[in-house]
C-alpha cells in the first residue's frame, strides 16, 4: 500500500523535465499516474525520482496542425472524450478512450501516459497503430518522431530512451472513415482480453483502405495486415468481412493467462474483427 520513498520533481518545461530525467537514471515520469501508482503501491517498481509533468503547459491539450490532429501527451482521457476536434478527426480515439478504465481513472489518466506505459492489454496502443499515428519525443538530443509501428517495442517497453519524454501524438485525419473499437473484457472494469481497432474507408462503395490493429494479441499491438489486405478492394459486404476477419490472428502470438488461453484469444480475435469490421464498413 505504501510506495518505497522517492524524490519528487515538478518541472514546468519539457527541457527541465528532460534534465530531471537525465539527472537520475532511476527516475520515472509521472503523468496521470493511473498505471504507475498501483505499481508503486504494490512495490513492483521503486523509482528513486518521480518527474511530475502536470505543470508542463505545452503537453496539455488538443490542436489541429495541417492535416494532423495533435494530442498533447498530458491530455487526460476525460478531456479527449469531451474534445470536438478528436470526435471529428479521430473518432476511433474517442470510442476507444470511452472504454479505458473507469470515470475516476479517465479524469487523471493521460493519453500519453497510456501509450508510454505500453501495456499490451491497454486499448490505446492498438488504436495509435491503426491510425498510423506519429509519436513525438523530446530528449537531451532534441526532438524526434517515431511511427506508432516502431514505438511499441515489447511488453511494457517503448522506443523511448530513459531520458526521453513523449510530448505529443500526431494523428492523421480519418474523418469520414468508418471506425470501431471492439473490446472484449470479462468485467466492465477489466483489461481487454482482446480488442480490435478497425478503420475502413470506402469510395463509391468499394473498400479503399482497411486498418486493423489488435490489443492483447501479443507482447505489443499487432497490425492485422492479412485482414487489411483481404478486405481492401472488396465491396465490403458481409461475406468479404467474414472472410477477411478469418485472418485476424495470422502472425499473432497471443498470451495465455487467467483471462484466456492463446487459442481462445485467437478465436476471439477473429470474431471480434468480424464484428468491428461489420460496424466500420457500415459508415
Amino acid at each position: 500500500m505504501i510506495p518505497v520513498g522517492f524524490e519528487y520533481s515538478r518541472p514546468s518545461t519539457v527541457e527541465e523535465a528532460v534534465a530531471a530525467l537525465a539527472a537520475d537514471p532511476d527516475a520515472k515520469v509521472l503523468a496521470g499516474g493511473q498505471s504507475l501508482l498501483p505499481v508503486l503501491r504494490l512495490r513492483l517498481a521503486a523509482p528513486t525520482t518521480l518527474v511530475d509533468l502536470r505543470d508542463v503547459e505545452s503537453l496539455h491539450g488538443v490542436r489541429v496542425a495541417g492535416d494532423d490532429l495533435v494530442i498533447g501527451a498530458m491530455t487526460t482521457h476525460d478531456e479527449i472524450l469531451h474534445d470536438a476536434r478528436v470526435a471529428e478527426h479521430a473518432p476511433l480515439i474517442a470510442a476507444a478512450t470511452a472504454t479505458v478504465g473507469d470515470r475516476q481513472v479517465r479524469h487523471l489518466g493521460t493519453f500519453g501516459g497510456s501509450l508510454s506505459h505500453a501495456d499490451p492489454a491497454g486499448d490505446l496502443p492498438a488504436v495509435a497503430c491503426a491510425l498510423d499515428a506519429t509519436m513525438v519525443a523530446v530528449g537531451p538530443n532534441g526532438r524526434r518522431e517515431i511511427p506508432a509501428a516502431d514505438f511499441f517495442v515489447d511488453y511494457l517497453t517503448t522506443a523511448l530512451a530513459p531520458d526521453e519524454i513523449l510530448v505529443e501524438v500526431r494523428v492523421p485525419d480519418t474523418a469520414g472513415w468508418g471506425h470501431r473499437y471492439e473490446k472484449f473484457n470479462r468485467m466492465a472494469q477489466a483489461w481487454s482480453i482482446v480488442g480490435v481497432a478497425a478503420l475502413v474507408r470506402r469510395v463509391d462503395g468499394g473498400v479503399t483502405d482497411t486498418r486493423v490493429a489488435l490489443t492483447n494479441m501479443g507482447r505489443r499491438p499487432v497490425r492485422a495486415t492479412a485482414v487489411e489486405r483481404a478486405l481492401t478492394g472488396t465491396a465490403g459486404d458481409a461475406g468479404a468481412v467474414t472472410a477477411a476477419a478469418g485472418h485476424a490472428d495470422e502472425g499473432a502470438e497471443p498470451p495465455s493467462d487467467v483471462n484466456g488461453a492463446a487459442d481462445y484469444r485467437a478465436h476471439l480475435s477473429r470474431v471480434l474483427t468480424r464484428r468491428a469490421l461489420t460496424v466500420a464498413v457500415g459508415a
Binding site: Q34, L37, P38, V105, L108
Partner: peptide
C-alpha cells in the same frame, strides 16, 4: 484495496471524481 479497483476512496479533486489512492 491497493490496486485502484474498489473506488471506496473516491473524492472530488477540483470537482472531478478521482480515486485518492491513485494520486499522490
Amino acid at each position: 484495496c491497493d490496486t485502484s479497483n474498489c473506488g471506496a476512496c473516491t473524492v472530488l479533486v477540483d470537482g472531478r471524481a478521482v480515486k485518492s489512492c491513485a494520486l499522490l
